[in-house]
Nucleic acid binder design. Structure first.
Ligand SMILES: Nc1ncnc2c1ncn2[C@@H]1O[C@H](COP(=O)(O)OP(=O)(O)OP(=O)(O)O)[C@@H](O)[C@H]1O
Length: 700
DNA sequence: GAGGACCGGTTTTTT
DNA sequence: ACCGGTCCTC
């Protein structure tokens, strides 16, 4: 595939700052990959190049492409994984131990909840979540706990206190949260210029994909690293900025030219991905954003089908349309399931799709979503291993000390935590001392003492095996067998089988993980990769993909659906109170649409079940913002009223705008004309409606 | 300390 | 409809 002149210009650029600003499908990622190959070809050592992508999946793909083309390995990762690399090497300069564990969102939330309770607040998950958001936002904006100021009426001084206490506890537990992985390297570089200088010498070329979604911390990190040599190459599309809620700031694009004076700016205008219909439809939508860089984007691919909008009556109808379309395209368009993807706004929307595909035997895979490693039984088992690896990790400790039940309830555990904190000991080591009688600061009943002894026995056993370099899978198996987690899984017979299967899967993953790497297989590395979500998920070859719009970034498929285009879903209800919010939702829709190569289907439903309640929806404003000439829809026959004759109508399914789906039970004439008695499922009542006025939709 | 009944908020998006 | 939190009883 030949690069166009603009792409060539970017790919052959060697030294100095460069910014590539270009629309969807114009080959930005392609340019990054090609430029890495070019640098390698002219002799730059692979160890001097760092490429940063938005997801681990994208990083793996890019690394593999480069490897295939040059046979060389280049460090390609997310910002967070780069943060871990830096911190593992140098965090001791900040007074942390370099054998830190990494807390996922659940762990951080538990810790924040604990901090709230310690500060005399009542236990409340919703408040803890808000706190977590505020702390996370602060870290991503490089605001320390000392400098924290409440930024909304919901946040109080308490949030600042929680932030301080939370950081203190993290340090005490030898743990970092996700945001620390960006925040601490910058703190380190500020504190120790010599360390920074060593990284500047080591990494001479930086490349950043999806630049429009970098936040302040990420920008600061690369700014530090590129300060001396200025060899920084960024590519992005302001119209695809969809992470402002995580602190992403398009102004980083403006800052780039300011912070790196003399930066070359290149634009790419040809889209190689989509047909004109799709590109123009998406382009028409995005022009509705007022705050915007105008960009040219065109495609040579004329013809093809228009974008299809399907207005469904209810969710069942929407699912039926999707299934029919999928099967039709598989038969007639020579597409495989792997060529198809469905995007939605929220993860919850995948449920109905899953049910539908399961019932039809259509193979599917969910990309992203609730991770395997977030499942309770997996987290429980891993918590045992983590406590053995990180004896200070009180969050993992608390997760499993009484799982299965060992007669150690909240108050006993609290005593242990307090006493351990008092004596400044790792919680596990404290318990070891306690049962050996080396410490008498906590008195336990016989039963409780037996419980602690049993727990400690398991962990010491695990630690011993780890010292002997026993295989990771064997450690996990041992942890599972010794801990008695079987008992707690069996407590819920409904789900037990699935959960045992998940445990099995984890063991198998560990086995193949170890087989893949020969020497460097420490259990610590294994746990770290799991925390970063960096495991390469094996893609199913013949499956249709289902993912959130956010996860669709950077991908492409011949056929795409964007589903649930209703007001309050997309745009989402929580984003509607500001123009910026709406504009970001519009960009989200734009990103989804521009993933499609040849076929694009947008669906909207007028009747939905939400929180167990029925709700009427109005079509998303975005649908009406797409220029009509690129669209075909079923809108025209949507309002058709079929004039039925009396008896033929009985038993038919109909749909009423207000009452939802129903079945005609009786048909007769009144002075107003043809009238039906209709039983409405959702209301569980029968109503008599005049056909002429009821505007029923038939035959669905 | 464990287990059950009851209440209320909940779903935005991810590394 | 579901999960997490609280309150109550044993
Ligand atoms: N010069 C070219 N000739 C042919 N195909 C190309 C060329 N450049 C890129 N492509 C193809 O166009 C598609 C889109 O490229 P790429 O994913 O790099 O775009 P992008 O700008 O990163 O897209 P987005 O920002 O929407 O994720 C890919 O399939 C790529 O192989």
């Amino acid at each position: 595939m030949a690069l166009n002149p603009q792409q060539k210009l970017a790919v052959s650029h060697v030294e100095g700052p460069m910014l590539v600003i270009a629309g969807a499908g114009s080959g930005k990622t392609k340019v990054v990959t090609s430029r890495i190959c070019n640098l390698l070809n002219i002799g730059v050592p692979s160890s001097e190049i760092i490429a940063l992508t938005f997801t681990n999946k994208a990083a793996n793909e890019m690394r593999l492409r480069v490897q295939n083309q040059t046979n060389l390995q280049v460090w390609t990762s997310t910002f967070h994984a780069l943060g871990v690399l830096i911190l593992r090497e140098s965090i001791s300069h900040l007074g942390y131990d370099n054998s830190f564990t990494i807390y996922d969102a659940q762990d951080s939330l538990s810790l924040i909840q604990n901090c709230l309770v310690l500060l005399g607040q009542k236990k409340d998950r919703a408040i803890a979540k808000k706190c977590k958001m505020a702390i996370s936002r602060s870290k991503n904006n490089l605001i320390s706990a000392e400098n924290f100021t409440p930024s909304s009426f919901e946040e109080t001084e308490i949030t600042g206190q929680v932030y301080s206490l939370y950081q203190k506890k993290l340090k005490e537990y030898g743990a970092l949260d996700f945001d620390d992985l960006l925040y601490l390297p910058i703190a380190l570089f500020k504190k120790e210029p010599e360390i920074l200088a060593s990284y500047q010498r080591r990494w001479r070329f930086l490349l950043i994909d999806e630049y429009q979604d970098t936040n302040k911390a990420q920008y600061q990190l690369i700014k530090c690293l590129a300060q001396t040599h200025q060899n920084i190459f960024t590519v992005g599309d302001p119209d695809q900025s969809i992470y402002s809620w995580r602190g992403a700031d398009i102004n980083n694009i403006l800052s780039f030219e300011k912070d790196f004076p003399g930066a070359h700016v290149i634009t790419l205008e040809e889209n190689y991905r989509s047909t004109c219909h799709i590109l123009n439809a998406a382009g028409g939508l995005i022009t509705n954003n007022a705050q915007r860089y105008e960009k040219k984007l065109w495609s040579k691919q004329t013809g093809g089908e228009k974008v299809t909008i399907y207005y469904a009556q209810d969710e069942r109808d929407e699912m039926r349309f999707i299934i029919n379309t999928v099967m039709r395209c598989k038969e007639n368009e020579n597409l495989s399931f792997a060529d198809m993807a469905i995007f939605y706004r929220t993860n919850a929307q995948s449920r109905l799709l899953e049910d539908a595909f399961l019932s039809q035997g259509i193979p599917y895979q969910i990309i992203g979503g609730v991770s395997f490693y977030e499942r309770k039984e997996i987290k429980d088992l891993l918590a045992y291993v983590k406590v053995a690896c990180f004896p200070s990790d009180a969050i993992s400790f608390a997760r499993v000390i009484n799982l299965p039940k060992r007669g150690l309830g909240p108050s006993t555990c609290d005593k242990l935590y307090h006493a351990a904190a008092q004596s400044q000991m790792p919680i596990l080591d404290f318990c070891i001392d306690l049962i050996h009688g080396n410490n008498s600061s906590v008195s336990l009943s016989k039963k409780q003492s037996a419980g602690v002894t049993e727990f400690v026995r398991i962990l010491c056993l695990l630690q011993e095996k780890m010292k002997q370099n026993v295989a990771i899978s064997d450690i996990l198996k041992l942890a599972f067998d010794e801990s008695g987690l079987t008992l707690s899984i069996k407590e819920d017979p409904e789900t037990a089988q699935d959960r045992f299967a998940n445990i099995d899967e984890l063991l198998n993953k560990a086995i193949s993980w170890e087989e893949e790497r020969d020497e460097t297989h420490s259990i610590y590395t294994f746990l770290e990769e799991l925390s970063l979500n960096a495991q390469v998920k094996k893609e199913q070859q013949q499956a249709l993909s289902m993912l959130t719009l956010h996860n669709s970034k950077g991908l492409e498929f011949p056929l795409c659906f964007v589903v649930g285009l209703e007001e309050d879903t997309l745009p989402h209800i929580n984003c509607k109170d500001s123009v910026e919010g709406i504009e970001e939702e519009r960009r989200l829709c734009y990103v989804g649409m521009t993933r499609a190569k040849r076929h694009l289907y947008l669906t909207s439903t007028s009747y939905k079940r939400i929180f167990g309640q029925s709700k009427f929806m109005t079509p998303s404003r975005f649908l009406s913002e797409i220029p009509e000439q690129y669209v075909q829809s079923n809108q025209s026959d949507f309002n058709d009223i079929e004039e039925d004759n009396e008896d033929a109508a009985i038993g038919k399914q109909v749909f009423h705008r207000d009452f939802g789906p129903g079945i005609i039970q009786r048909a007769y004439n009144t002075s107003l004309g043809l009238t039906y008695d209709i039983y409405f499922e959702d209301l569980q009542t029968t109503r008599s409606l005049v056909a002429r006025y009821a505007k029923l939709q038939h035959g669905y």
